[in-house]
């Protein structure tokens, strides 16, 4: 089972990195989703796969007698999923707003913030069009 998980993690990471190397930000985001899931599977594998029996102590006993599933990785993965869901939602809206503002989702065509001779007067945020994106 661990071998299978390891192969899956490797495949997801490879696919994720391939997607993230794309100049298109939407593809980058999909790559990030894949690689986050690879991280989640890594946690699952790290906790050792011990079958699907829930970790419940039978009545009258003080400890479990058979091999049971490790509950901690599940708790960790749940936390990680919740966080990555929030981040994904933010990233989608950020990319959408960027597309609306700059008219492109290709990272090589965004040269506004990164050029040395860039006219700095536009940098002062004047609050115009303050986005609900950022506030929520």
């Amino acid at each position: 089972m661990e071998t299978l998980l390891a192969l899956l993690v490797g495949f997801l990471t490879a696919a994720g990195i391939y997607m993230m190397l794309n100049l298109n930000l939407v593809r980058f985001m999909f790559g990030l989703v894949l690689i986050s899931n690879a991280a989640n599977f890594t946690i699952l594998a790290a906790g050792r796969y011990e079958g699907a029996v829930p970790a419940l102590v039978p009545e009258g006993l003080k400890t479990v007698t058979t091999s049971v599933a490790n509950g901690l990785p599940q708790a960790l993965i749940l936390t990680a999923i919740v966080i990555s869901f929030g981040i994904l939602a933010f990233s989608v809206v950020l990319i959408l707003r960027t597309y609306q503002e700059l008219g492109t989702v290709r990272s090589d065509r965004m040269r506004i913030a990164d050029t040395t001779d860039y006219a700095p007067k536009a940098t002062a945020p004047d609050g115009q069009g303050a986005s609900e994106v950022a506030g929520s």
């Binding site: 930000l25 990030l32 690689i35 986050s36 965004m110 506004i112 945020p125 950022a134």
Partner: peptide
């Protein structure tokens, strides 16, 4: 970092967000 929503902020924000998310995944792994 994107509060205010100017063009430069969107551009800078994308860079900031993207690379920090990569670092987070590495940390988690």
């Amino acid at each position: 970092i994107v509060l205010g929503g100017s063009k430069a902020q969107m551009d800078g924000g994308i860079r900031y967000v993207a690379i920090n998310l990569v670092s987070t995944v590495m940390f988690l792994m």
